[in-house]
Design a protein around this nucleic acid. Structure first.
Lengths: 335, 335
DNA sequence: AACGGGAATGTAATCGATTACATTCTAAAG
DNA sequence: CTTTAGAATGTAATCGATTACATTCCCGTT
């Protein structure tokens, strides 16, 4: 690769002039500009960003850290982030952490080493201390999942209330034996709050808790199926399930069908996140729309303010409204 | 943020010594090391990666460019890429291009500007010229989607043969009116090859072509539903559908059910990519497993060889075996 | 005592850009 | 014919690290 010096040499000008041509930053005569551009083309010169970034203090890049892109739910959040980022001429780099602290630290090094201007945590694995500490030095924001009792900003929804709303739907449809199925980390706020809502709702009505939570930390569809099976073995009268995601709800429905039970006639199921699984699954699944595009956009707006040292437009600990989307899986008269 | 110089000043040593302590690269007495480490802690010093990278010629980072992370199919490829990358202490940055050339160019700048050591294209929008040109200067590889007749390496499967295999399943089940449903770009090789297989298969048997391809470029489930409806309106006798992805297959089944037709009894449907949609959809969908984890891993192995200037282990234009996964959507005796 | 070698540390060049400041040149104004 | 403003270009410092090379110091050998 050629450098600015080689271009300068070929064009018989100083490096300063080449820089001026490249950045269009000051007076350059037409003739010289021509000559420099020729040289650039001839040498196929591409400015080394590192040299530039070392002088400038910003990189026009932000990092998005999430568990894994295999969850389409994250894609919508990312789109919201990207919308605002692109409006500000920022690039978005997405990294999978797989809930692995070490891996996350690896990527956070990019922040600490000034390779990116800020970080959006969609699901973080750091300690409160760590994130407080990062937040004190760098632009940082949490979206959807967040740690409470820390200084860092977050944008999310009231998972507790949404959980209660879902329980209410099942309850009003006459269900009294309601299972709770969860796979994945129990450390995250969404999971904790959903479970708390589930337990509180049952406690208020003196109904039994039927769940695997928080004993196991497994992932995905097949495990949801298995867990639903286990719960049904232990509590055969269970007629409704609260799944913490739409994909899990699909797994539960599969297991119910396998046991000759039809949804919603014999049992009802609710999911969460309103992903494509909610309408791909048959029957369609009642779910919660988080408005994740908006959440991503708001979080990025906050981050941009932080990066540009401008006052922040909205409250930096913000829970926005959600919507319950009722579908076939909780409709009495359906089918 | 503090710099190496400030640390040196506080520890009363030269910057060279600080660098030696940080990198553990040469003799440093215990006492000095202690002092420097104290200073580092006190100032909360974090080395600026830019300074370092400017000297070194590598960044230990690669870029993965894909259409959008909303397709869970890509997640598996990325996992394969990450496995090999992490083995080599490389970080993986994922970027959405949304099929937008301008956006892609934005990210490719990172390659040209030496901010990353290489690029994996999962779906590229550049011209053959452009990619040839990049390939001549930088480590570059294509996986799953690729441009033919260029120098750049690719790792994929034989979409044409897989398409014929799927058609064969539908044909052997007695279907003679087979529709082809596609949404998204018709420019990509997978889409072209699947369609070519479809047409050739029908031509060989003098059967009618029933498709929207390549008139419309729409995306996703809802459009698949609509297109299936249109095709059924025009060709009511259509009894089988070749969908270019599992999600589309789900949409088609939805439309068929809506019209009172049951799958596989009244009509059969096949999908592609063997994503979670294939088993979340009811009935489960016959699909093609690309072994995308392996494809990702192989592509990354190639890229690492290129980056490290080592001989490449396997052929750099490689189509690996795929598997047809037959499920309920093409089983005659099912249900 | 003189010497040699390795440990410990420092000095300064270097990576590839940007940019403040200096300098030269040109043309219009007085 | 000077003066002068501003256009055009160059010189060199700078960003924050790494590292080749130089230097100093200490200790064991001869």
């Amino acid at each position: 690769m050629s450098t600015i010096e080689q271009v300068a040499l070929l064009a018989k000008v100083s490096v300063a002039t080449v820089s001026r041509v490249v950045n269009n930053s000051a007076y350059v005569s037409e003739a010289t500009r021509e000559r420099v551009e020729q040289a650039i083309k001839k040498l196929n010169y591409q400015p080394n960003a590192l040299g530039k970034l070392l002088r400038k203090e910003t990189t026009s890049m932000v990092l998005v850290l999430l568990h894994s892109v295999d969850n389409p739910f994250f894609a919508t959040i990312v789109q919201g982030i990207e919308k605002v980022a692109h409006e500000n001429d920022y690039n978005v780099l997405i990294c999978n952490t797989y809930g692995d602290t070490e891996r996350e630290q690896h990527y956070l090094k990019m922040l600490r080493n000034h390779l990116v201007d800020g970080v959006v945590f969609i699901s973080n694995t750091c300690t409160s201390e760590e994130i407080n500490y990062l937040n004190a030095t760098f632009p940082v924001v949490q979206v959807v999942e967040y740690l409470t009792d820390i200084d860092a900003a977050h944008y999310s929804i009231d998972f507790y209330q949404a959980g209660k709303d879902l329980m209410d739907i099942l309850y009003k449809n006459g269900h009294r034996s309601i299972g709770f199925v969860h796979t994945g980390s129990t450390e995250i706020v969404s999971s904790k709050e959903k479970f708390r809502a589930y337990k509180d709702f049952l406690k208020e009505r003196r109904l039994p808790v039927i769940t695997n939570y928080p004993d196991e930390c497994l992932f995905g569809y097949a495990n949801a199926k298995k867990i639903a099976g286990d719960l049904l073995d232990k509590h055969p009268k269970t007629t409704a399930f609260f799944a913490t995601s739409d994909l899990l709800a699909c797994g539960i429905i599969d297991e119910l069908n396998f046991r000759g039970k039809s949804v919603p006639k014999d049992a009802m199921v609710v999911g969460f996140d309103n992903t494509s699984y909610a309408y791909v699954g048959k029957p369609n699944i009642t779910s919660v729309e988080l408005n994740s595009f908006q959440l991503g956009a708001m979080a990025m707006e906050y981050l941009m303010s932080k990066i540009k040292n401008k006052p922040v437009a909205h409250n930096n600990k913000c829970l926005i409204p959600y919507q319950i989307i009722e579908r076939e899986s909780t409709k009495k008269d359906s089918r």
